[in-house]
């Protein structure tokens, strides 16, 4: 069986010639991203499925009580598992992780974990003894380009949706009681900010020489937001920018051998703010709608102080 995706000259020509004239094969404009469709599991907390075009990712958050690391007694643990299986596409191998997979994992690690999106200190239950360990498991169900953006989006919406069980610490801190979810209202995680990853792809439509020389030669570089699989196959380089809606740049990662103009980089980052706002808004409205639906369905109003029972 072939493990690679082959692309015919015809498709390559149409993608490249199209880009040279500002047309994309799926009819989007160059700086338009596909919009995600989010499905949230109604009967539990922290399971979401995100469809981004044909790319399909599911994400589950789970928690357990563990002992913290000795050198960080106040901090909880936070792990993101993102192994790509060949379920997503036969181009990914089950047993060994390829370059793409490592890159995606690292990018998500950098964007979400190392940017302190989740407040680790809020996960502490008893200092030095018991903390929450939060695990995010990402499953990749279908691949049509742009796993990084989709994964980051799915992880962030799942984290915001997740609620961990309420904990009661008994006097002295020797014993804790973890209340079941239907016994006491669970507590949401403390999310400090919401990073959004967005990927630009670069194509050099001119001479390959300008890749090496960089300046001087007339550059015909085209940048494209949120590529599909076909577009990803013919790319020359790519750039992942992670931003949040406070207009903070969390990380920038530029891969591939194409040089990029500093001014161009600034321009792209600025343009991305529009998409960051849009995607954050999608997250917010989905979560608010889900919250409201749950509130009505579970009759949570009855729990409020002064509710008419």
């Amino acid at each position: 069986m072939n493990r690679t995706v082959e692309i015919s000259n015809n498709e390559r020509q149409y993608v490249l010639q199209g880009l040279a004239n500002g047309i994309r094969t799926d009819g989007r404009s160059l700086d338009t991203s596909r919009m995600p469709e989010v499905w949230i599991e109604p009967n539990e907390y922290g399971y979401v499925e995100v469809k981004w075009g044909k790319t399909y990712v599911s994400c589950r958050v789970s928690s357990e009580v563990v002992a913290p690391f000795e050198d960080r007694p106040f901090e909880g643990l936070f792990v993101i598992n993102s192994e790509i299986s060949s379920q997503a596409s036969a181009m990914f191998d089950n047993s060994k992780s390829g370059v793409d997979e490592v890159l995606i994992t690292r990018m998500i690690e950098k964007a979400v974990r190392r940017s302190n999106a989740l407040d680790l200190e809020s996960l502490c239950i008893v200092a030095g003894k018991k903390v929450w360990s939060i695990t995010v498991d990402v499953n990749f169900l279908n691949y049509d380009g742009n796993f990084i953006d989709v994964t980051c989006f799915a992880v962030m919406i799942a984290l915001q949706h997740y609620k961990k069980p309420d904990v009661l610490v008994e006097a002295g801190g020797d014993k804790i009681i973890v209340h079941l979810v239907d016994e006491r209202q669970p507590v949401p995680l403390s999310i400090l900010h919401v990073p959004i990853c967005l990927t630009y792809l670069f194509y050099n439509l001119g001479d390959i020489e300008s890749n090496i020389k960089g300046e001087g030669t007339e550059s015909q570089e085209v940048s494209v937001l949120d590529a599909s699989l076909t577009e990803e196959l013919v790319r020359d380089g790519f750039l992942v920018i992670t931003l949040n809606k406070n207009r903070e740049i969390i990380q920038i990662s530029k891969n591939g051998g194409l040089p990029i103009d500093a001014l161009n980089l600034m321009r792209l980052s600025k343009e991305l703010m529009e998409w960051v706002d849009k995607l954050t808004e999608v997250m917010k409205t989905t979560l608010v709608a889900d919250e409201k639906e749950r509130y009505d369905r579970l009759h949570l109003k009855l729990l409020e102080v002064g509710a008419n029972r």
């Binding site: 069986m1 072939n2 493990r3 036969a90 181009m91």
Partner: peptide, 9 residues
């Protein structure tokens, strides 16, 4: 010749 991605040649 490849007839479909991931098939044998």
């Amino acid at each position: 010749v490849l007839l479909q991605n991931f098939l044998s040649n």
